[in-house]
């Protein structure tokens, strides 16, 4: 009845190092390395520094969205508004710069503020009005799409190009030293992943977000303000969508109204591949980073071996099935 009553896993999963990092993360890292190795061998063009740089470039905004949405997923919810959201926020910021003559700094600030407003709205709908997260954020997803178009009168917005006077913000993510371009954005993303890992595992917000996802009613009956903490997950998601919008604006030449739907699925897919459970209660920010990398690696790598975008969709879908099935198996074992 005592210690021997406790379930034992196999030798691999009980290894202290494996336990500390998590089985799924080790698997994901292995897959990542294998994929990278495979593409490098299969295609000489893939080995180029510029290719690696572009993989990174295109991963920033997805990674940032994914970090935020991880928190919603851990509460047992989801945030679908982030895809059209980043387009909407980027359009608002760009519009102020292009048509109202505002400095870029103001544009960036407005982009973030808009994201926080939508994030807070999502949180209120889910935590206070108790709408199902899927529906609530589906609605704000539509609202964001419409809002971006209306605010800009349906015009695409070009944020100031690199090298121009106002284009300094682009070097936040890619530092052009003339001879070499440095993926500075990767440093920020890494720092944010570390920061948010600490928030998730070491602060009250994180602890209660995990607790709510595991058993909301037991958490409430422990005297925890579940409304506040559930809401904060959506605000975090909104904030990171705002950061994602800035990354998107810095990466692409133009932002087109009416686009963005589907980008959230890349972010959510990345989080799931990284081991975050759709049922809530467990997940990790580092895992999310790795998951998104697998997604972008497939996206960028497959064309190099002659498989076009449609194939990439199919393969991503298959990878997701495997990832979710692992989650299902884990949950079965828990019961």
């Amino acid at each position: 009845m005592m210690a021997n009553n406790v379930k034992k896993g196999n030798a691999f999963t009980e290894n202290p190092i494996v336990r500390a990092i998590g089985t799924q993360k080790i698997v994901v890292v292995a897959v990542l390395i294998i994929l990278f190795g495979f593409f490098c061998i299969a295609s000489p063009a893939f080995r180029q520094y510029s290719t690696i740089l572009s993989i990174m470039d295109y991963s920033y905004y997805t990674t940032l969205m994914a970090i935020g949405v991880t928190f919603c997923l851990i509460t047992g919810g989801v945030d679908l508004s982030i895809g059209t959201g980043i387009i909407c926020y980027g359009l608002l910021g760009g519009f102020l710069i292009n048509h109202k003559g505002m400095p870029v700094a103001v544009g960036l600030l407005v982009t973030l503020l808009a994201a926080l407003v939508i994030g807070t709205l999502n949180g209120a709908l889910v935590a206070i009005l108790e709408l199902p997260p899927f529906i609530a954020t589906l609605c704000t997803m539509m609202i964001c799409r419409g809002l971006g178009s209306i605010a800009t009168g349906g015009l695409s917005q070009n944020w100031p190009p690199a090298g121009s006077e106002q284009g300094w913000f682009r070097s936040i993510f890619k530092l052009d030293l003339g001879t070499i371009k440095l993926p500075l954005g990767f440093v920020w993303v890494l720092l944010l992943v570390i920061l948010m890992s600490v928030v998730l595992n070491k602060t009250k917000v994180g602890r209660y977000i995990i607790a709510i996802g595991s058993n909301k009613e037991a958490t409430r009956l422990s005297g925890v303000n579940v409304i506040k903490y559930q809401m904060s997950a959506y605000i975090i998601s909104g904030f990171f969508a705002g950061l994602g919008a800035i990354a998107y604006a810095a990466t692409f030449q133009a932002i087109a109204p009416g686009t963005g739907a589907g980008l959230e699925l890349d972010a959510i897919g990345g989080a799931i591949i990284g081991g975050t459970s759709m049922n809530g209660g467990s997940g990790s920010v580092a895992g999310t980073l790795l998951g998104v990398f697998i997604m972008s690696m497939l996206k960028t790598g497959l064309p190099f071996i002659g498989l076009q975008a449609n194939w990439q969709q199919i393969i991503t879908g298959l990878v997701l099935i495997v990832a979710v099935y692992i989650d299902v198996l884990k949950n079965k074992k828990m019961q």
């Binding site: 595991s214 058993n215 037991a218 958490t219 828990m334």
Partner: peptide
């Protein structure tokens, strides 16, 4: 299990 503890923690 439903209201007392968070079993997965």
């Amino acid at each position: 299990k439903r209201f007392g503890i968070v079993t997965a923690k």
